[in-house]
Amino acid sequence: MDQPIAKQERAFWGNHVSFVALCPRLQEGWDVITASPADEPAAKQAVVLVVEDEVLVRLMLADELREHGYVVVEAASGDEAVNLLRGGVHVGLVVTDVRMPGNIDGVGLARFIRGEHPDIKIIMVSGHMTSPEAVNFVDGFLSKPYDLKLLVRNIELILARSSGMDPVE
């Protein structure tokens, strides 16, 4: 019996990089995550908001996502991300760091998104263990340093699943 893609990848990467399914939101669909080429065009219409205060890290991730065909919006802080979302920027998925300067960190941003924009998918990245509360808000968690290609692959998977269940405009 074929394993779902997410599990195969997890097994492949082993301890090198961990994409941890901490999140009930993700685990509910863990065994049914599948991505086919037909899913990708719809998924890649989604706008990805990258929230990261380290400019070189933000640049690398944003570049990688643009090379994969995504429209990327960059925010240098949680405050900028909130401004963008409150300003009406339509986002399908947010990748956010946890520790950031300003009035709102990654956990606060995730809480805001769940309250105001429940359809937006969230992947949290951090070099530190984050608060247990965060797992209730996010669709995926990746520990730093992370493999860019693995992160992009998981973005593809989450958006593909999302476009199947709740199409992203």
């Binding site: 400019v55 933000r58 640049l59 944003a62 919006v73 960059e74 925010a75 240098a76 802080s77 900028e80 401004n83 963008l84 300003g87 920027v89």
Partner: peptide, 26 residues
């Protein structure tokens, strides 16, 4: 951020490679 996003998108649409910085330190 909105000003940065708009001009960066426009420049990308014109074929430029764009790197965004939120301040002089970045």
């Amino acid at each position: 951020v909105f000003v940065r996003m708009v001009i960066s998108d426009y420049l990308r649409g014109c074929g430029y490679k764009v790197i965004e910085a939120a301040d002089a330190d970045e």
